[in-house]
Design a protein around this nucleic acid. Structure first.
Length: 151
RNA sequence: GCAGGGGCCCAGGCGGUCGCCGGUGGCGCGCGAGCCGCGAGGCUCGUUCGUCGCGGGAGGAACGUCCGAGCUCCACAGGGUGAGGUGCCGGGUAACGCCCGGUGCAGGUGACUGCGAGGAGAGUGCCACAGAGAACAGACCGCCGGGCUCGUCGUUCGCGGCGCGCCCGGUAAGGGUGAAACGGCGGGGUAAGAGCCCACCGCGUCGUCGGCAACGACGAUGGCAGGGAAAACCCCACCUGGAGCAAGGCCACAUAGGGAGGCGACGGCGUCGAAAGGCGUCGGAAGGGCGACCCGCCCGGUGCCUCCGGGUAGGCUGCACGAGACCCGUGGCGACGCGGGUCCUAGAGGAAUGAUCGUCACCGCGGCGAGGGCGACCGAGCCGCGGAACAGAACUCGGCGUACGGGCGCCUGCGACC
RNA sequence: AGGCGCGUAGCUCAGUGGUAGAGCACUACCUUGACACGGUAGGGGUCGUUGGUUCAAUCCCAAUCGCGCCUA
């Protein structure tokens, strides 16, 4: 949306850019900052590697709709994330939790909803990176992943 | 035309742009192994990632999880009891609680549809309220006969008729109650009545005939014996071993067997040996298993059980050629069977199969409207707006149930016209 | 994948084949100067839905909808 040039090609989105395990999702949820929109709750958190491209995790509960509608929400959210590589700086992971009513949205509506909070998202992303700077550095020298504290 | 019944089919098409999953082929970086070379290095194979190309990628219900199986493990899974399920007859099938064809009953004018439709001559229990009486019952009113008192009328003075009341008896026709009242209706019969007798109907039994059978038709006979309910317990017949792909198998990693408590059994024989002990054989405990219990049996043979503590939650496989799909022929009323040919058709794993734009078809509403009709009105075509359902594989099939958009021809009833 | 349970008045629950109930809440009246408390009376129900069995169903049977729970 920014730049006026409709994104078309070259924006891939494979498994490497997804947050898959429940453990990782909980880690983001715990230390992340939240941004609410009308149909989504966005949670930003630091990824394990600050140089890697940002990753995406999606949560759609049964309250949102049946499996067809839940799948559609996930596909549209994934598409919106894929077409907006500049939405987040590298190293910041995004967790999207759908709220009720999300299945009625098309791709354009989701993009508009996110663009409206873009400034807030950028500010929160900088906060997250700054706050976790030392931790991230420590992390790089320490054991690889899975250092979630038993809490 | 309207209303209805049943059957079959489809699950939007095409194109542009950008993606996802796995397969396959090429290229590139890296890694590993092997071989060659003194060496630099080279070659081959495998593989992560990236990239380019090719072809593939949800359903009729993928859904619910109500049944039946395949497959895998549990021990080879037996007998009895119990538990659960099924329940007209015949057939189909790998199997079924499914399907097909019949039978009976019920519903509908009809096309058609529905039915847990074995047994109440095995037993136990239940049938509220109402009602006199509710299961081998019962006399409240009524009806009929007899007796007694009283009243009245008549009297040939013997008594007789009528009526109120009481008593004894007969009666299930009528009233009334009920969901149901111990066959129905009509006639005869009788004091009044009653299958007491008769005709018809119903019911039971027997026989003959038809049918594989459920059952049907006909005849004889009994004289009524019979209530309902088994989706109350139950009886009868038949079926069912248990668990489930997180089944199960392989690899890697980790613990290397920690602590507490409890139980226990080892024995006989043979043989070798100087002995310790070894080998063979027989019996067998603790404990465990065969769904629950019993029987019966099996494992267990030097350990076993319970609790606490500790470790692992990664990869591969199972995993898609199957009771498979389609076409043709053939047997059968049909479900379905048989034969031949062609084809390979999703395999993900926090979970792909999509997003968006255009266009063409489809449906609804509104407007314009060629034209048709005396008219109400019908209406090709054009424009605009809106709609386009139910729903997402998770080991795989066969059914059932439920949700839902549209199309096709067939059949039935009614109305109008010819 | 396997298994279990619950839907009854506005709320929390009884009832388990024969008129559907309790507590709280609600309404009216009494009591008070007024209120609370108390007392008297009253209203309120597709028993989740749809079929079936039965003379009769909240209850029995089947299907279906919604909610909750257990095991792996």
């Amino acid at each position: 949306m920014a730049g006026g040039e409709p994104a078309t090609s070259g924006f891939h989105f494979g498994r490497a850019r997804r947050i898959k395990s429940r453990r990782e999702i909980l880690a983001v949820q715990h230390g992340g900052s939240r941004v609410h929109t009308a149909h989504f709750l966005l949670i930003l958190g630091r990824g394990p590697d600050t140089t890697a491209a940002s990753r995406l995790g999606i949560t759609v509960t049964r309250k949102v709709g049946d499996s067809v509608r839940r799948n559609r929400v996930k596909r549209v959210v994934r598409e919106a994330f894929r077409l907006a590589p500049a939405f987040l700086p590298s190293g910041v992971d995004l967790l999207v939790i759908a709220k009720a009513g999300a299945p009625t949205l098309g791709l354009a509506a989701v993009q508009a909803e996110w663009a409206a909070v873009r400034g807030l998202v950028e500010r929160r992303a900088r906060e997250v990176l700054a706050r976790s700077g030392p931790a991230a550095a420590e992390r790089l020298t320490g054991p690889p992943a899975m250092t979630t504290k038993p809490r």
